[in-house]
Amino acid sequence: MNNKLTGSVVVIGGGISGMLSALDLANSGYYVYLVEKGPSIGGVMAQLDKTFPTNDCAM
């Protein structure tokens, strides 16, 4: 069974969670397809002005 394993992962959704899953996997030795419905990645976090509790810029 093991010789049939494919060393790639499809990540569906390019929000903060999907992006970071993709980065971790790519940096660990897996090929990643990051699939996003919209024309750009970033998700809802890119729409936020600041983040709590540090009030850092979300962008």
Partner: peptide, 23 residues
Amino acid sequence: VLDASAAASAAGDALSAARNTLT
């Protein structure tokens, strides 16, 4: 963010034998 890394870890664990084959 923790979920993201955890999901990467779970997905990777299942494929550990095929790591570094496609990169």
